[in-house]
Structures are given as C-alpha cells and as structure tokens.
C-alpha cells in the first residue's frame, strides 16, 4: 500500500470533520461514500463542458467539485476544480492551462479515490 500523500487527501481535514460532528467517523465514512458516488457526475459534466467549449456550463460542476472535494480533504482535486471554475467564470477556456486541467482532473480524482478508499478500509468497522 502506498504511503498516504497529504497533498492528494489531507487526512487532517477528515479528522477535523469527524471532530466537528462529535467524533462520528461512521458519518465521515458515509460522507466519503456519497462523495465518491457524486463526484463522477460532476467530472462528466466538466468533461462535457470542456469538449463543447461551453465556459458557462463549466462553472457549476467545477464549483461543486471544488467545494465537496475540499470537504473530504481531496485538496489537489479541489485545487484543479477551482482552476477550472475560474476559467469558466472568465469565459476563456480555450487556453493551455485549462486544457491541461481538463486532462489531469480525471487522474486527480483517481488518486483521491484510492486514498479515500484506503481511509475507509482503515476506519471500517
């Protein structure tokens, strides 16, 4: 098993989250499950907006993914989503930076998912 990388998933965020709901790690596990179910939908919306070059359509899924990823500590993914949200807001998504973000965000999610699933295993039962 690879060593957890805090840039991918900051487990401190998950600890704080658990503390903020009275130490209920079961809730955090449930939340991660929900996140993992919902994130692919936002990723698909982001990809679709990128392909069609629709800057406005990029804003909301990127915004939502930014926010929910930050909630579960997936900071790298959240940062990528934030960058895409900003691009969408600027109306300019034809640039290299955006092309790179659109390209990389799937891998960011895959990496975050792997770490989150590892966290779930660690905290199972």
């Amino acid at each position: 098993m690879p060593e957890p990388d805090p840039r991918i998933v900051d487990s401190g965020v998950l600890d704080e989250l658990a503390a903020s709901v009275g130490g209920d790690t079961g809730f955090v596990a449930e939340l991660i499950g929900t996140y993992l179910d919902d994130a692919p939908v936002h990723l698909a919306d982001i990809a679709a907006a990128g392909q069609s070059g629709d800057a406005a359509a990029l804003v909301r899924p990127a915004h939502t993914l930014k926010s929910s990823s930050a909630t579960v500590g997936a900071m790298q993914l959240s940062g990528r989503a934030r960058s895409l949200e900003m691009a969408g807001r600027s109306g300019e998504i034809g640039g290299q930076q955006t092309a790179g973000d659109l390209e990389a965000i799937g891998q960011d999610f895959a990496a975050a998912e792997a770490e989150l699933r590892a966290w779930l295993e660690d905290h199972a039962g």
């Binding site: 709901v21 809730f27 919902d38 926010s67 909630t71």
Partner: peptide, 16 residues
Amino acid sequence: DDSRVNRLVLAKQLET
C-alpha cells in the same frame, strides 16, 4: 445546497 456532500456535512454539524 446543490451538493449532497455539502448538505450532509452541514446537516450533520447542525444536528450535532
């Protein structure tokens, strides 16, 4: 909130 994750977190924190 349109994000289910965000709703769940906030709801849980408020319930706490």
